[in-house]
Write a protein that binds this DNA or RNA. Structure first.
Lengths: 245, 245
DNA sequence: CTCAATTTGTTCGTATGTATA
DNA sequence: TTATACATACGAACAAATTGA
């Protein structure tokens, strides 16, 4: 009685959209496409995969959420750059999800950031030893100026950390660090404006980090990283105590 | 002339599916839902948000890809557990994407895993000091038995590392570690079967890690972690050299 | 600049598969 | 087993964005 039109699929348990998603991923891998390369149009995929447009769209939706496919309205679909952006969205949402321990997620983020910085300290010092980077110090100078004017310096901060790790060849580590920086920035506003003294301490720590790296002094680098996160952890600790009291 | 039906939306630039996604996220946060809690049905969302079912479905698709929403066929939609699974999928795909430097992604994964292990060594040793965990050692015993029978021990390996970090209160770190373990396992098969001597060395390192943690000996712990990854890094190095030759 | 072609975005109607009671 | 509620799938039509003639 049942014509069983699903026999064509490998397993009837998996949904059309799910199998279609795998097909698209396989297509990208099979044809050795790279980020930015154009993908077939929706209608072409419908024909070649033998599924409806809705299914293709849902599959593409999923891949788009993972930054594996990038879709531009009225233009076409392309291979995404497979960034860490999905994880950032995820962690930001997670941070907002916990109403009880509000600052716990942020504290965990900071702890992991510090851990990564410490772990790659030898590699960073080895890479920078003997070199001097004007842009790195210019970023710190700009932080100082902005601090004196009472302005924020998120942009310089991001640039500094990105630049500092740029000579490393572990792309995963670099992207992970930047991703956690992003999560940090998008979760921290609830902390309120930090103390001016703490800001000054943070800026100084950036200078110390750059100096230690360029001197190839791993121990000094560890100390500077510790100083970098110290005021933040202090604020976080205070906020958590206030929240529980 | 223009009836402008999009006035209801905050910004006409964003797509329906995108705003719908934000609405659902806001709904979860606003009503303080937790992972596992039921969500309104598709039709209910269509009515309350004033959009078509397709748009709701595409929005849900995106949230489902990020493990923010879990949808059970024929049952309903629920708040997902916001796990690291999306990142695992992402990194596995990334690993398969590079045809040139095949083992580079895997090497980066291993390096980050080792970095995290080293970074949290003091916390692990502090948490385990003076304690003795039968299950931890039982896992190692089982590894030994399986090695003697020439079998794999992925399950025991995962349990070991998960158990080892279980006393830490940084959930993010634990989930990150497990996620990288998953990526590692799903990317490493291309390396081929490792040398029996290396396997033995790896198993011994697990024992040493457990002993060091329970003794509260941070230095020994660092050494054990190094030994744990040493055979793997050796194989990886060899594979990369063979690939370039 | 305007027009037309291409491509993705949105909607609706309908039929089907699935889980629960 | 039946009934109900729900998600899944398909196809057609129209809207909106982009590109290039």
């Amino acid at each position: 009685m049942n014509p069983d039109p699903t026999t064509a699929n490998k397993s009837r348990a998996r949904s059309q959209a799910s199998t279609t998603m795998s097909e698209i991923k396989d297509y990208i891998l099979r044809t050795h496409l790279e980020p930015g390369d154009p993908l077939p149009t929706e209608t072409q995929m419908c024909e070649s995969l033998g599924v409806s447009r809705s299914s293709v769209r849902e599959a593409v939706r999923t891949l788009s959420a993972l930054d594996i496919v990038e879709v531009r309205h009225g233009h076409g679909m392309f291979v995404g750059n497979v960034s860490m952006h999905p994880m950032v969205e995820l962690l930001v949402f997670r941070g907002l999800l916990n109403p009880g321990d509000d600052y716990r997620s942020l504290a965990e983020i900071v702890e992991v950031r510090a851990a990564l910085d410490h772990a790659f300290a030898p590699a960073v010092c080895r890479a920078w030893k003997g070199r001097h980077d004007a842009e790195l110090h210019a970023a710190v100078d700009e932080m100082v100026r902005r601090t004196e004017r009472g302005e924020a310096f998120a942009e310089q901060d991001r640039f500094f950390h990105s630049r500092l790790l740029s000579p490393l060849d572990n792309r995963l580590f670099r992207q992970l660090t930047e991703a956690f920086w992003d999560v940090h920035m998008r979760t921290s506003p609830r902390l309120g404006a930090p103390d001016p003294v703490d800001i000054r301490e943070t800026v100084d720590a950036h200078r110390a980090i750059a100096d230690a790296a360029e001197a190839g002094d791993v121990d000094a680098y560890h100390d500077a990283v510790r100083d970098h996160y110290k005021p933040l952890l202090r604020n976080l600790q205070g906020a958590r105590e206030r929240a529980t009291s």
